[in-house]
Design a protein around this nucleic acid. Structure first.
Length: 282
DNA sequence: TGCCCCCTGCAG
DNA sequence: CTGCAGGGGGCA
């Protein structure tokens, strides 16, 4: 799924649509996609949206919905308006609900939020706000890379915890750093000029500084272009993100490097497809 | 720290 | 048909 930039794209897109709206009903089409007592949310008003790692939080008074989209989750909002610019809304979204729709949130104002998830890996959990602290829901996550407290020294300190593991594999570990997934891990290594297979113990301080900037820049670009849509990802308006048009390596096997024209390599690291330029990344 | 697995569907 | 896909929990 959805990595940090995609979840952030959803948060930003959804905020103006559902903050202040009140839940009328929740229709759970796939029981495994939703846990908690949905009746507790009826007549509750959305007061805030936040993101931690790749989890989206929808806050109500005393209660929060935690949403993880995993590989194929989507959150698409349809307002009450049947027509936008003279065209039926289904032209924008495809017919909704569709065969991947797992949960439908209906609001008092007639708006509907569809949780689609083809592969059914995603989940929505209703938790009490007090329990988020008590149950330490977020404790396992490492630092947020777009917070200003995230320095290259912190990056180094975190990565070296797994010193004999390829740097790209460590970047995917949410306990080390939050929010980076397969696309942005590849892109960050490219921007830093680091071979993704290099062990973290072998990185110099200079390389850690470049990797620190590479992480921040790739994530910020992901947000700037509305996320990556290789297959499933769409924003709350049902539209695809454009980041992959600007990616240097991800999903570009055998295509020429945008910098040096060398064909991009694809290897497998930690079981995941990994793309890099063998000339630019040492 | 490395598999297997949870699922569905698409490309090769 | 096999392999692969923005994730990550559980298990040896």
């Amino acid at each position: 799924m959805p990595e940090l930039p995609e979840v952030e794209t959803i948060r930003l897109g959804l905020a103006g649509k559902i903050i202040g709206s009140t839940i009328r009903n929740i229709n759970v089409l796939n029981p495994k996609s939703f846990s908690g007592d949905k009746k507790l949310l009826v007549h509750k008003k959305v007061i805030n949206l936040f993101r931690r790692a790749k989890i989206l939080g929808v806050e109500f008074t005393h209660l929060t919905l935690l949403v993880h989209l995993k590989m194929s989750g989507q959150l698409i909002y349809q307002g009450k308006e049947k027509f936008v610019g003279g065209h039926p809304t289904r032209d924008m979204f495809g017919d909704l609900p569709n065969k991947s729709t797992r949960v439908i949130f209906e609001f008092d104002n007639g708006g509907k939020l569809y949780f689609n998830d083809q592969r059914k890996f995603g989940w929505i959990k209703l938790v009490e706000n007090a329990r988020i602290r008590e149950q330490k829901v977020f404790d396992k996550f490492g630092p947020e890379p777009l917070e200003k407290e995230f320095t290259w020294e912190i990056l180094k300190r975190q990565l070296v915890k797994r010193k004999n593991t390829p740097v790209k594999v460590v970047l995917l570990d949410q306990a080390v750093i939050s929010g980076i997934g397969n696309i942005y891990a590849c892109e960050a290594c490219f921007l830093a000029g680091i071979n993704p297979n290099k062990k973290t113990i072998r990185l110099t301080d200079k390389e850690y500084k470049k990797l620190h900037l590479g992480i921040i820049n790739s994530l910020k670009n992901g947000i700037k272009y509305g996320g990556s849509s290789k297959t499933h990802f769409v924003n709350p308006e049902g539209k695809k993100g454009l980041f992959l048009n600007y990616a240097f390596v991800y999903s570009r096997e055998k295509l020429p490097c945008k910098i040096c024209k060398t064909p991009i390599n694809k290897i497998k690291l930690g079981g995941r497809g990994t793309y890099f330029c063998p000339a630019c990344q040492k």
